[in-house]
C-alpha cells in the first residue's frame, strides 16, 4: 500500500480538540440571506493550512491518493488540492479528517498538534465555522533517501 517498503505505516489518531471559543462572527444565517459553505471549501482551507506546517511532507498519500484519483472523476467532489482530507460541514460546525505523510525525524505528535492548531485557526478565520475536531492520521514517514525529489512537494 505505502510507496515505500522501508518504512512501516504509522497511524497516530489523536483525540478530538476541545473547542475554546465559539465561532467568531459566524453570521451564516442573517436577515439578508443565508450563507452556505461547501465541504470543498473547508477541505481546501484545511489542506493549505496542513501543508504550511514544516515537517509535513505531503497531505494525502497511499490509499488516500488512490481514492483521490477516483474522486477526481466524480462530479461535485473536491480537487486534488483536497486529496486526503475529509470534511463534514454542518450549519455552524465542521469536523475534519486529514491523512498526512511526515518527514523522517520529526516529532509526529508535535507536528500533528501544529497541524491541528493551524487547521483550526485557518478554518475558523476564513469560514467562521466552529471546528469540533481535527483527526490527524499519519500514514507514512518520508525518508530523505526515498527519492531524489526534483521538485519540493511542500509549501516553503
Amino acid at each position: 500500500m505505502t510507496p515505500s517498503t522501508s518504512t512501516s505505516a504509522t497511524t497516530v489518531t489523536t483525540t478530538p480538540v476541545t473547542q475554546t471559543s465559539g465561532a467568531p462572527g459566524s453570521e451564516l444565517v442573517s436577515s439578508q440571506g443565508r450563507t452556505s459553505i461547501a465541504d470543498a471549501v473547508v477541505q481546501k482551507v484545511a489542506g493549505v493550512a496542513a501543508r504550511e506546517i514544516s515537517g509535513v511532507y505531503a497531505v494525502g498519500g497511499g490509499s488516500a491518493r488512490a481514492l483521490g484519483a477516483i474522486k477526481d472523476r466524480m462530479p461535485g467532489t473536491a480537487s486534488s488540492a483536497s486529496s486526503g482530507i475529509t470534511a463534514e460541514v454542518g450549519e455552524r460546525q465542521a469536523a475534519i479528517d486529514l491523512v498526512l505523510v511526515v518527514e523522517y525525524g520529526v516529532s509526529i505528535v508535535d507536528v500533528a498538534q501544529a497541524v491541528r492548531r493551524n487547521v483550526i485557526s485557518s478554518i475558523e478565520g476564513m469560514t467562521g465555522l466552529e471546528v469540533t475536531e481535527v483527526n490527524v492520521n499519519v500514514n507514512d514517514v518520508h525518508l530523505p533517501s526515498e527519492e531524489p525529489d526534483p521538485e519540493p512537494a511542500r509549501v516553503q
Binding site: Q32, G33, A38, A40, A78, S79
Partner: peptide
Amino acid sequence: PVHVGVDDL
C-alpha cells in the same frame, strides 16, 4: 435576501 453559497475556493 441574498442566499450565498460558497462551493469552492
